[in-house]
Amino acid sequence: MMLIGLATTALQAQEKPTMVRVEVDGLSCPFCAYGLEKHFTDLDGVKDVVIDIKKGLLTFQVDDPAKINEALIRKTVKKAGFTPRSVVYEKEEKSDKTKG
């Protein structure tokens, strides 16, 4: 019973999506933002893409941070025509992985 409980807790922790915050330079027009948004919504495993033009911030959720890794995120931002700055993976318990 205890094992089942632990396994369920572990599974729930695993399934909890990770929020990713990406600072993007060059976001200065709304149509550009749409191109960035589309590049990320097209990535399998990325959901809830939100863009804040004023803050130059792209946020989204991923189920598997290993699959949507920092290298892929930076490559996708560049492919969309922008310059990536920091990429932050943010768990709810604040065990962040930050790279500049």
Binding site: C29, P30, A33, Y34, G35, I53, K54, A80
Partner: peptide, 22 residues
């Protein structure tokens, strides 16, 4: 204001993104 704006109408833009490229 601190808002984003669109491309000019009678002049070319160096932006090749969004509406200017897709």
């Amino acid at each position: 204001q601190a808002t984003a704006q669109g491309p000019p109408v009678f002049t070319e833009t160096p932006i090749m993104l969004g509406l200017e490229g897709r």
